[in-house]
């Protein structure tokens, strides 16, 4: 192990030259490349992150609109249902009313028909009675003359039965 100023000076010169050249030829270019790549990766990651955020925002917006559309559709459906219900009720009540009317009209018609039938029947009975009485008496009673009388008689008859008995007796 020796110490010589000669080697000391040479070591300083050599190392400084070595350092300067190596920095020029090795570290500068390699570090530049590494830093550039790092920068690029960082940029790309940032861009990817940004894109992700935007995509998420778009998705949220999309879902929001979808939900809105669904709500609106639901509203339309329920409105239609309500309308249909109302219409049904109206139709039903109208039908009931018409049916009621028809029944009442029919009943009224039946009643008047019955009235008319009873009246007709009475007249027929009166005629028959006059004819029968004429046959019994051997002469024909003048229909017009005695209608009043027979009507009177029939009216005095009890409502059911008794006519033949009264006539024959």
């Amino acid at each position: 192990m020796e110490f010589s100023t000669n080697e000391l000076i040479w070591a300083i010169i050599n190392f400084v030259v070595f350092f300067v050249l190596l920095r020029l030829f090795l570290y500068r270019p390699v570090l530049k490349i590494l830093d550039g790549r790092r920068e690029e990766i960082r940029d790309n990651l940032a861009k990817a992150e940004q894109a992700r955020t935007m995509a998420e925002k778009a998705l949220a917006e999309h879902e929001r609109q979808l939900a809105k559309a669904r709500d609106e559709a639901q509203a339309v459906i329920s409105r239609a249902q309500a309308t249909a219900e109302k219409t049904k009720d109206e139709i039903l009540s109208q039908a009931q009313r018409q049916a009621q009317d028809a029944i009442e009209r029919a009943q009224r018609a039946i009643a008047s028909e019955k009235e008319r039938a009873v009246t007709e029947l009475r007249r027929e009975v009166a005629d028959l009675a006059v004819m029968a009485a004429g046959k019994v008496l051997g002469r024909s009673l003048d229909v017009e003359d005695h209608r009043e009388f027979v009507d009177e008689m029939v009216r005095k008859l009890p409502p059911a039965g008794g006519v033949p008995a009264g006539k024959t007796g």
């Binding site: 020796e2 110490f3 080697e7 000391l8 000076i9 070591a11 300083i12 190392f15």
Partner: peptide
């Protein structure tokens, strides 16, 4: 070997 000479290591240390 340069580093087995104290002058060299002293030069490096000086740097």
């Amino acid at each position: 070997a340069p580093t087995s000479n104290w002058g060299v290591t002293a030069g490096l240390a000086a740097v």
